[in-house]
């Protein structure tokens, strides 16, 4: 890990740009980047964790109306989106692998597909939002279709959870787009640089969050 001698002159032999001047060697830099991103992901767990805590408390306090409200979400779109995200998770993971082997064309292609799948996800999400609004499924609507007050708690959580997830998706797409363009111009070394690996980790995490949002928001309250 850090058992490297103090930065010395031998570091100068490495290619420019890939190694920042304050690091000693690439393995130290890679370790720092990986750890930094993972720590950030730990904070993300707690960020979404606050929402999960609210869900947990209200599902316990008002189970009936809460799950009745959950049965109103668009399960078809939610499930299609799950499939889309799982596929994009695969292409992102393969892109990371290909980048490790410096396979330029494969990386471009895989990141491209990941971006397209991400856009498809957001488009489906947007259509779903349009349907929800059409069905008056937002707490301030005077025609909110569900009787029990606690149904509005569920729908508040639905909007915040999916909204924040969509924000994370958008950030991820932005990162992929920048990396795709940089990779197309070949202005960084795919294998020496951490960019693709870091973006892949972040994308997998956004994917992973959805794996929990999907049952909480779409699958809950479906069985009799």
């Amino acid at each position: 890990m850090s058992k490297t001698p103090f930065p010395g002159q031998e570091a100068a032999a490495l290619p420019p740009r890939a190694l920042a001047s304050h690091f000693h060697d690439l393995s130290q830099q890679k370790a720092a980047h990986d750890l930094g991103l993972w720590i950030f992901l730990a904070t993300e767990i707690l960020f979404f964790g606050g929402l999960f805590a609210a869900y947990l408390v209200y599902a316990l306090l008002h189970p009936g109306p809460f799950f009745e409200a959950a049965a109103e979400t668009e399960i078809l779109i939610g499930t299609i989106n799950t499939a889309i995200l799982l596929t994009s998770g695969l292409t992102a993971a393969l892109a990371v692998k290909a980048a490790g082997q410096n396979r330029h064309d494969a990386v471009l292609l895989l990141i491209g597909i990941t971006i397209l799948l991400g856009l498809a996800f957001l488009a489906a999400k947007g259509f779903e939002y349009w349907l929800d609004i059409h069905h008056h499924l937002y707490p301030t609507s005077p025609d909110f279709p569900l009787e029990a007050p606690a149904a509005k708690l569920f729908w508040s959580l639905y909007w915040v959870m999916t909204g924040l997830h969509a924000v994370h998706m958008t950030v991820g797409l932005g990162i992929w787009a920048v990396i795709w363009e940089m990779a197309r111009r070949r202005n960084f070394s795919l294998s020496d640089n951490s960019r693709v690996r870091i973006a892949g980790l972040y994308w997998a995490f956004v994917d992973l969050m959805w794996l929990f949002l999907w049952p909480l928001l779409y699958l809950a309250g479906r069985a009799g």
Binding site: W38, L41, A42, T43, E44, L46, G49, G50, F52, A53
Partner: peptide
């Protein structure tokens, strides 16, 4: 660090 996120979530819950 990944575990810490989950452990602290358990504390919160």
């Amino acid at each position: 660090s990944g575990m810490a996120g989950i452990v602290w979530l358990t504390i919160l819950f």
